[in-house]
Design a protein around this nucleic acid. Structure first.
Lengths: 184, 184
DNA sequence: TTTATTCGGAAACGATCATTCCCTATTATC
DNA sequence: GATAATAGGGAATGATCGTTTCCGAATAAA
């Protein structure tokens, strides 16, 4: 079932919510129509489950990428680099279900909007935490405002997914090199 | 007709492409079904026309906002501030048709993807130009790389539209204050 | 005044959508 | 070994989609 959900994630990432038919889902999940409706109340429920699954996986990936840094500043650098990588190539082309949910459904579905907000705020808190760690270990100046910088970095990461979906190339080292100025 | 197209822009911004039915369009444009198909080949053509209309208006708004600055650095500051304002409140909630096109259609419609790319690259060139102006007038250090910084700023602006659509509040002065560090 | 033409409006079309229902295996229980 | 219960597969359903077609009104030409 989790593997079926992973396949649903891919379809929703690639095609978004409205362009994904139940037929697309059953084909991707290798499940019949009836089976999908046995497991989920309706299409929105499939989307919400896929959303949570995606968010969980991405949270872990982001955290493990950050963990590779030796101090707060380096952890932020690795996190940003990880975001660029995921915004590029096949995965970048496929897209992010959080960005898709925000753009396609935030205005139409309060339930989805709440999940998107929760995910964005969780990420923002994580980034702000990394900044504070950096200030504690001396790798980031004290005058950096964690909340403001974190919110701008959220804009950067979400924007990278948009640009990546449009297939503009992103150079990780150069982009992150510039972005690290925000911690000066 | 241009006023009808403006109404179509609003609907496509708010609901995206697939969630907007011809019925939604005719209601918003105050046109009958037949009249829409007299003026446009199909739904995609309406979207492309709305896209171009939106892009043109936004280009002018961005340029006139930038023009309020006395030097390159100040022009960039005003441009970023303008983007935050447009990403907030009613207009932010409504959304950006370029971001919507990128997220919802870039993977499915090569024609839309080409328009999105063109719009992003135009904006990026404009920003890179402002940076070079700032370097020429001494308001921006010479070691700033125009292309890399411009691409990151594109990520920032597109990301702000995503975050604004999710209805997270954005503080213009604080956000732009942080972003201006990229020009240090 | 009459005729031809253009323009907008609404009904009708086939296709596709999300959803429901029913049937068939398979497993577990007694 | 028989039976009840459950999970999965696929056809049927009503609604809605994008699109086409036809009709009437308004305008311009004759």
């Amino acid at each position: 079932m989790d593997t079926a959900l992973d396949r649903a994630v891919r379809v929703f990432c690639e095609r978004g919510y409205h362009a994904t038919s139940i037929g697309d889902l059953t084909a991707a999940m290798r499940l019949a129509t009836g089976s999908v409706y046995k497991a989920f109340r309706d299409k929105q429920a499939v989307f919400l489950a896929a959303f949570e699954r995606y968010a969980t996986v991405r949270r872990e990936q982001t955290r493990s990428a950050a963990a590779r840094g030796a101090n707060g500043r380096e952890r932020l650098r690795h996190m940003l680099l990880s975001y660029v990588e995921h915004s590029q190539g096949i995965e970048g082309r496929r897209g992010c279900i959080v960005v898709g949910g925000a753009v396609e459904l935030a205005a139409l579905d309060p339930e989805v909007r709440a999940r998107v907000n929760a995910q964005l705020e969780t990420n923002e808190s994580f980034i702000a935490g990394l900044i504070r760690e950096g200030q504690a270990d001396g790798s980031i100046p004290a005058h950096v405002v964690p909340e403001d910088t974190a919110r701008l970095m959220i804009c950067i990461t979400q924007g990278m997914r948009v640009v990546g979906k449009a297939r503009l190339p992103l150079d990780g080292d150069r982009l992150v090199g510039v972005a690290m100025k925000l911690l000066a």
